[in-house]
Amino acid sequence: MHRFANPGRFMRVARRVRPWTLGAALLLLPVGLYQALIASPPDYQQHDTVRILYIHVPAAILAQGAYVLMALGSAAFLIWKHPLGDLSARAVAPIGAVFCLICLVTGAVWGKPTWGTYWVWDARLTSMLILLFLFIGYMALANAFDDPARGDKPAAILAIVGIVNIPVIKFSVYFFNTLHQQSTLFSAGGPAMPPEMLTPLALLGGSFAAFFLWLFAVRLAGEFAKVRLRAIRGGLIRRERPAESRPSASARGTR
């Protein structure tokens, strides 16, 4: 694990997995779409609207996964001053925000024909909306300053504080009365869903997850390059002797 802690080496690994993740995402997508829209059966209650599930659920899982990654990165940055932590959190925040938005919007257009409403303020929907606001708040805070490095710390603290929302989302449907039903995938007796419906979910979920990794690797490279740019422009690294890793905020103070 330690060899990945070196930012330069980590970035090379991230660069190498890019074509594989994109390839997997694009390969799984048509198969998953075929299964989701054509091959899988309509539900006995919801009929064809159940097909929205196959994008709604992966988006919900990945949005929460992105938040956990963002909080872990922020913790690594705050506690160990690990530069990759901050970079990962900055890279994953917009990805998480978009998956969270997809979850909310697909949920709304699914809710209208099944529940009879686009939106209700129940505990599950509200906590998911808070997750979107946490992503947006993180991005706003991280980029609020002329010197982006000054935004690192407040944004990281917000990300760590907001992690309490993740168990709230998970258990909202068990702890409170909600319009949203309980978990299908993680229900007590295994997934409450037949295999012909689990197949499109797994395929599109796999495609989305691979695409998520690709987005993360690409954005991470961008954040890495931006930090190096700032360092060079700030005269922290002399061009003839480029350092391998990004100078952290504390290194700047001691120099």
Binding site: L37, D48, T49, I55, T106, V109, K112
Partner: peptide, 8 residues
């Protein structure tokens, strides 16, 4: 509903 979800 289905197509607006997938389209979005």
């Amino acid at each position: 509903f289905v197509w607006s979800a997938y389209g979005f």
